[in-house]
Simulated assay, not measured.
Amino acid sequence: MSVIVFTPSLSKRKELLKIITHAHKQWKFRIALAVFLFVLSAAVIVGMAILLLMNPTTIEGILAFSGAGICFSSIPFFIALSVKNTAKYKCGFPYSSYANASLLLNDDSLEYVFWRVGPHEPAAYSSTRAVYRDEDKFTFTINKSDIASLCVRNEICYIKGDGILQMPEWAVANNITTENCKEFSFIPAFPENNFSKRIKDWRSYNVRTED
């Protein structure tokens, strides 16, 4: 059986993360807070405009009031942006931290390669400006014979068994760059729409071959 390769898709990643984040129990609260802050920012500008209309002043006064209004309104505005981005990242975690992921299904093993990113990195939000260095990649590998279970549920692929997670040196504190991994999951952010069927067929083929 030849190697099956799934390459990353930014649009699919956005689509799946949107589904996952919106289903999170904290999503509505976080977004409601962001909306409130956006409205508050707009209210400051509107209030300043009304104040100027009701109390005509000089050009210097208008400029001074306008500058103060913009400064005051920018505070809740930027806080709202931060709250919104934090909601996207935390409500989609850990999948929001897996970027540029690809999957290789070999005859005898499964290999998932990804880059781990934080909430302040462009890659967390599927930006095309993200840069990925080979020495920073993470790799989850599991032999087909060590897979206890594999399923795709609610836009997430779950794997249980005896796998290994290979990590870059900067991500560890004890110089041990490999970690035994009994459970691992990821979102199939690939352009193929038949991922669930293909990975199940791959698993079934390998199980039958072993028997």
Rank of each mutant, 00 (worst) to 15 (best):
I187Y: 01
E179F: 12
P191L: 10
K182G: 12
S145L: 06
A148P: 01
G163I: 00
K200N: 14
S127Y: 12
P168E: 10
K197Y: 09
S126R: 01
N143Y: 08
V117A: 07
T178M: 15
N154P: 03
K182T: 10
G118K: 15
A148F: 11
E121Y: 13
G163L: 05
E192A: 10
C151G: 04
N174T: 05
S149Q: 13
D201W: 01
D201A: 11
F138S: 07
A124W: 01
I187Q: 02
A171I: 10
D162P: 01
R116L: 13
T141E: 08
F186D: 08
V172W: 07
K137P: 00
A130P: 02
Q166L: 15
R198K: 14
T178N: 13
G163R: 00
K182A: 12
K137W: 03
D134Y: 06
W170M: 08
I156A: 03
T128C: 05
N174S: 12
I187H: 04
R153W: 06
I156K: 03
D134P: 00
C157H: 06
I142R: 00
I142H: 00
R129A: 09
N174G: 08
A124G: 10
F190D: 05
V113S: 05
D162M: 09
E155T: 09
A123M: 07
L165A: 06
Y112E: 04
V117W: 01
L165R: 05
K197G: 01
T128H: 12
C181K: 00
K137L: 10
N143E: 13
I142E: 04
I199S: 03
G161T: 06
M167H: 09
Y112W: 07
I187D: 03
Y158C: 02
R116E: 15
I176G: 02
D201H: 08
